[in-house]
Write a protein that binds this DNA or RNA. Structure first.
Lengths: 228, 228
DNA sequence: CGCGTGCTTGATTGGTCTCAACCTTTGTGG
DNA sequence: CCACAAAGGTTGAGACCAATCAAGCACGCG
C-alpha cells in the first residue's frame, strides 16, 4: 500500500544533502523516518521540543506563529525537496512556530543526533546547513523590513512582483486568507487592495490567477507611498 | 600608541571560537585585521559585499535597516565579544543591513576564506557557527512575532521585562530614539507609553533609568490589550 | 439542494503616526 | 565659566491607515 520510496536518491538530490558521499547518504536515509501528515494536520506545535529536522518528500507545509483567538502569522511555505526545522535543533529551545500540512504530505524526519554526526564527518554538509540557514535569515530580515518599513500596498506589490510569473500571468500559491497573513494584512484589506489595483487597470484578478499588465506601474506604486 | 592586544586570547574566550585548537586559533588571530571605527561611523553599509565576519573587541555596534528620509529600523546590538556579519558570508548577496558604531570601537575582521578553511578542519567550529545563527534566527522570529502580532504597549512591556534588571532597576542600553526604532515605534509614541505606565504607578522613569515597581502589573498589561 | 468556506463590500473605529512647538540636557568654544 | 548650539526628549492637535464589525455573495462539495 505504501508507495515505494527511494529515500537515498530523494535526499541526494536536495541541495542540503548533495555534498554527502554515498555511504553517509545511505546511512542517513536508512535511519530517517517517513511521516505521513494529512491535509490540515500539524507536523508540530509551538512549544514542542525540536529533536530533528524534516524534509518534504511530497506536499506542502506552512510554518506560522500562532496568535490569540485562532489567528496566526504565516512565516513561510515549504514544498517538495525543502527542509525545515533545522535551526531549532541547535539551540535548546522548543519550537516557537507551528508547522501545518497544506496538503496531504509525506515527510522524512532525521534525528538531531544523526545530523550532528554527519556534520562532524563531512564539513561540506555543515556548509550546506550554514548556507541554508543564512538564506533563511536573509528572508526573515526582508520580512522584518517589509512589515516595519512598508505600507500594506507596498508589501502586496513586492509580493506580487516576486512571485513566479510567466509572461505576466501568475497564480497565488495559497488561498487569499493565507496570503493576507503572510503579508501581515487582514483578508479584507488584501481584497480591497487587489480591487484597487484592478480598478487602476494594473492587474486583473480571477480567483487565485493574477495577471500583471504593467510591472512598471506596480513598481512605481511600490516606490512612492501613493496618492490615491 | 596602539594598545597591545592579545588577539588569540581575545578570540579564544568567545563562544564562537572556544572550541578551536591553539594552532587554528593562532593562525586565525594572526590573519585577522584590527579595524578602528569611531563613534557614529559605519562599519559597512547596505549593499556592501560581505567578505568576512566581524568580532567586537571594544565598544558597541548597531545593526539596522536603512529606510527612506534618514530613518532606520534597528535590528540588533552587538557588544564586546560578539560576532556579527557571519550569515551573509554564506550567501552570495551584499549586506541588506548597515552596521554603525554606537561608541568608538575596535573590531577584528576575519575573511570569509579563513572562516571557511577552519570550518573544513574543525567540525566543532561549524557547530558553533550553526548554533549562533540558529539563535539569531530565533530572535528574529521573535521580532517578527512582536511587530506583527502585538501592540505598541505590548512590545514595550516585553522589551522592558527582558532587559537585564537588578532588583527592579534597569537602564536602557541606548537612547530612547534608538529604543523606539528597535521596537518599531516613533519616539513620540514611546515617550507617551512610558508616561502612561509611569502615571499608572507601575514604573518610574528618570532619563535612561527605569524602575519596575511591579513586574506582575506589567505582565498583566502585556496579556490583555488593555482598557485605558 | 443546502451548507460551509472563502471572499467581498460597506460603515465605523481606533491606534499610531505626523507635524509642530517647546522643553531639557549635553557638550563646546569663546 | 558662561553662552549658545545641537541633540535628545516631551507634549498637543489632528490626520490617516488599516483593523474591526457586520452583512452579503459565490462557489464547491457532500
Amino acid at each position: 500500500m505504501v508507495p515505494k520510496l527511494d529515500v537515498p536518491s530523494l535526499l541526494g538530490h536536495l541541495n542540503l544533502f548533495a555534498q554527502l558521499d554515498e555511504k553517509s547518504l545511505a546511512r542517513l536515509a536508512e535511519r530517517s523516518q517517513q511521516v505521513r501528515v494529512p491535509r490540515h494536520a500539524f507536523v508540530f506545535h509551538r512549544g514542542d521540543p525540536a529533536s530533528g529536522l524534516y524534509v518534504v518528500a511530497v506536499g506542502r507545509v506552512k510554518l506560522s506563529i500562532p496568535a490569540a483567538n485562532g489567528q496566526e502569522k504565516v512565516i513561510e511555505f515549504f514544498g517538495s525537496g525543502q527542509a525545515f526545522g533545522e535551526a531549532m535543533m541547535f539551540i535548546e529551545q522548543p519550537y516557537m512556530v507551528q508547522a501545518q500540512a497544506l496538503e496531504d504530505c509525506l515527510l522524512l524526519w532525521v534525528s538531531k543526533q544523526d545530523v550532528l554526526a554527519v556534520i562532524d564527518r563531512q564539513p561540506a554538509f555543515a556548509r550546506s546547513l550554514l548556507t541554508g540557514m543564512a538564506a533563511r535569515l536573509h528572508t526573515l530580515m526582508q520580512d522584518i523590513e517589509m512589515v516595519s518599513l512598508h505600507s500594506a500596498s507596498q508589501r502586496l506589490i513586492h509580493y506580487l512582483l516576486n512571485l513566479p510569473c510567466e509572461s505576466g500571468l501568475l497564480t497565488l500559491p495559497v488561498n487569499k486568507n493565507v496570503v493576507a497573513s503572510k503579508l501581515g494584512l487582514t483578508p479584507e484589506t488584501l481584497s480591497r487592495l487587489l480591487h484597487q489595483f484592478s480598478d487602476a487597470g494594473i492587474i486583473t484578478v480571477r480567483g487565485r490567477k493574477v495577471t500583471l499588465h504593467s510591472r512598471d506601474a506596480l513598481q512605481a506604486r511600490e516606490a512612492s507611498p501613493m496618492t490615491h
